[in-house]
Design a binder for these strands. Structure first.
Length: 220
DNA sequence: CGCATTTGACCGGCGC
DNA sequence: GCGCCGGTCAAATGCG
């Protein structure tokens, strides 16, 4: 039970576009703790295991990039309204704005039971920069200051044609050291920097990217 | 010169 | 019905 359609897949596909692929490996492990139900048939699930098994690498850089709070996840609203509330107590307490959004999301998915896959996921990230390179190309299309925050909110859209994935980035109102990122939608394509397979160094135990294209016969 | 970003205007939904 | 608010558009601007 590793991945669900949009977001986690996104992170499993992280390469080191800016040399920080290892940071994301810690993210994937956070997601696995988030209680995400899996509907994934992606071959990436095996890689997820490999990636989350690299805590040593991530620890080296945790000061720079460290996902701290998995705020909420809105996936395919299956008929089950089971309380799989993936919101940790910490997040609920520390991010009042986030709880508000969560409530609204619940209302939306309940009311618009017809709405096709508008998968949405948000999390807080401790980072100095707001532009987190996740391997995709994003085009900024809007900026807005929101009521409950002194910080502006930035709107991005995946620049790949035919892919209408959007993301929203803003600084945490309560702690400007954190960045709140919200992804919405599912990429209709793979990341330009998709990691298809990795190899492990026997001595250090670390994983290295071995290729950004599918190895022959490796899939299925 | 082409492209991404910026930024104010515009629009639709929601609450009062 | 009106005003507020969040989200998007699109022309202008800046940068590579």
């Amino acid at each position: 039970m590793a991945a669900v359609g949009a977001a986690p897949l996104l992170y499993q596909q992280q390469a080191q576009a800016v040399g920080d692929g290892c940071y994301f490996s810690s993210m994937s492990s956070h997601f696995s703790h988030g209680g995400i139900s899996s509907t994934s048939s992606s071959p990436a699930s095996s890689f997820s295991a490999a990636l989350s098994a690299t805590p040593a690498i991530a620890a080296d850089h945790e000061a720079q990039f460290d996902i701290s709070e998995y705020l909420f996840e809105e996936g395919a609203f299956s008929a089950s309204l089971t309380p799989v509330v993936p919101v940790p107590a910490v997040a609920a307490a520390g991010a009042s704005s986030a709880t508000a959004v969560t409530a609204r999301s619940a209302a939306e998915s309940a009311a618009a039971a017809e709405r096709p896959r508008t998968e949405r996921i948000a999390f807080r990230t401790r980072s100095e920069i707001e532009i987190l390179d996740d391997g995709y190309k994003w085009r900024k299309y809007g900026k807005k200051s929101v009521k409950n925050s002194p910080n502006p909110r930035n709107y991005y859209r995946c620049s790949t044609e035919g892919c209408n994935v959007k993301k929203r980035v803003e600084r945490d109102r309560d702690d400007p050291a954190y960045v709140v990122t919200t992804y919405e939608g599912t990429h209709s394509h793979v990341s330009p920097s998709t990691v298809y397979y990795a190899s492990q160094d026997a001595a250090s135990g670390r994983f290295f990217v071995a290729g950004t294209h599918p190895p022959p016969g490796s899939l299925n």
